[in-house]
Design a protein around this nucleic acid. Structure first.
Length: 182
DNA sequence: CGACTTTGACCTGCGC
DNA sequence: GCGCAGGTCAAAGTCG
């Protein structure tokens, strides 16, 4: 485990989790996910790094105007020039894992896959299948380091996990499992 | 048969 | 205006 980065949305700092990756870091991340009170936007730049942007208009807002109305949190007002967008809650982190999809306790339905420029791996798009929950996530493998998977969550779950009460310990368990196997 | 995945088409924003 | 890139839709296929 020598190249694991975890990015916490509560500040602009990037936490490098290796080799000093601790359970404290995981607890920190869990806190962020469970509290759902962070409004920073995150941008995966160069499909290798993830940065934060405090600008309300970021690359992540581009596609929202095409939504079919179910996810209107950040949808710009088509008719009326309401340019101020509500900041969406985004959480992204990189994991070093051989599996693309971490089992975070929620059920996801894949709704798209795209080849991304300058990346040899496709980006997959998932929605939470829980009724009324509009959380999405994107999963993409790092083209420069195939062992790294970048997962970006968008929105907040309106329901508890289906399987786990402490989903991120489970994630960590998977990360640990796969990284130690390297 | 319902839930999920696949994949081509479509839409939008942006840069030139 | 045009083309590109990213994001989403939705029909068809697959699976349990």
């Amino acid at each position: 485990m020598d190249d694991f980065h975890m990015l916490l949305p509560s500040s602009s700092s990037r936490v490098s989790a290796s080799p000093g990756f601790t359970l404290n870091t995981v607890a920190n991340l869990q806190t962020q996910f469970h509290s759902h009170n962070v409004n920073h936007e995150m941008k995966a730049a160069d499909h290798n790094q993830i940065q934060y942007s405090d600008h309300p208009k970021s690359v992540y807002d581009k596609g929202n105007s095409y939504n079919s109305g179910e996810n209107d949190q950040a949808k710009p007002d088509k008719k009326g020039g309401k340019k101020e967008m509500i900041k969406r809650q985004r959480y992204a982190f990189q994991t070093r894992s051989q599996v693309d999809i971490l089992d975070d306790g929620y059920r996801w339905r894949k709704y798209g896959q795209k080849i991304v420029k300058n990346s040899k791996f496709p980006r997959s798009y998932y929605k939470c299948t829980h009724k009324g929950c509009n959380v999405k996530k994107q999963i993409q493998r790092n083209s420069r380091n195939e062992e790294i998977v970048v997962t970006t969550y968008e929105g907040r779950h309106t329901h508890p996990t289906d399987k786990f009460t402490d989903s991120f310990e489970h994630i960590f368990a998977q990360i640990h499992t796969h990284t130690t196997a390297l």
